[in-house]
Design a binder for these strands. Structure first.
Length: 166
DNA sequence: GCCAACGTTGGC
DNA sequence: GCCAACGTTGGC
């Protein structure tokens, strides 16, 4: 099982939204490196759900991949901001996975907190100027983030988050 | 294949 | 709102 970090702007779609939805297609990724990482994801992989463009930015919880990569339908929708006129259904350019919420962090683990952890020194997340929205995370980094949230393996094994009311 | 112009990301 | 860093586009 691999670990990942995925970014989302909470004003647009935050971890609480994922808890309300129960499950969500992770669409709109339009960067080749990030897309390739999406395609590497396997069912059951864990994702740190990161809030970008937030004050403060940081990890809000853990999600789990519940469907592996398939074509992102928004690339074919002319009404969508994610429409890509150069893609075609025979050879879709962009992919998405489905994710579900697993554990909400009791409190956000901020970017500042991650930066202070030795495990995170080498991450693309903490590297200045890096804008990658999907990136691999080592198991050391994953557990360090979970520990910073005050959580343990037991909390992950407790199973999916109860669905929030919409 | 180079590279200038442009658009976007995302922390601050 | 600013702007540094980065990716993409397209003329040549």
């Amino acid at each position: 099982m691999r670990c990942w970090l995925i970014k989302s702007e909470p004003d647009v779609f935050g971890f609480a939204d994922l808890r309300r939805r129960g499950r969500e297609p992770w669409n709109g990724v339009r960067n080749y490196q990030a897309r390739n990482f999406l395609r590497d994801m396997r069912e059951g992989d864990l994702c740190l759900f990161y809030h970008s463009n937030a004050r403060p930015p940081g990890v809000a919880g853990v999600a789990r991949v519940c469907r592996e990569a398939y074509p992102d339908d928004l690339q074919f929708d002319p009404q969508s901001p994610y429409f890509d006129p150069r893609s075609n259904p025979a050879q879709p350019r962009w992919s998405m996975v489905d994710i579900e919420p697993l554990v909400a962090f009791p409190a956000l683990v901020s970017l500042d907190t991650l930066r202070a952890l030795p495990e995170w020194q080498t991450s693309a997340l903490t590297r200045k100027g890096s804008r990658l929205s999907v990136l691999p995370v080592s198991s050391d980094q994953f557990w360090a983030a979970l520990d910073a949230a005050g959580l343990s393996l037991d909390d992950l094994n407790a199973g999916p988050e109860p669905r929030l009311q919409a």
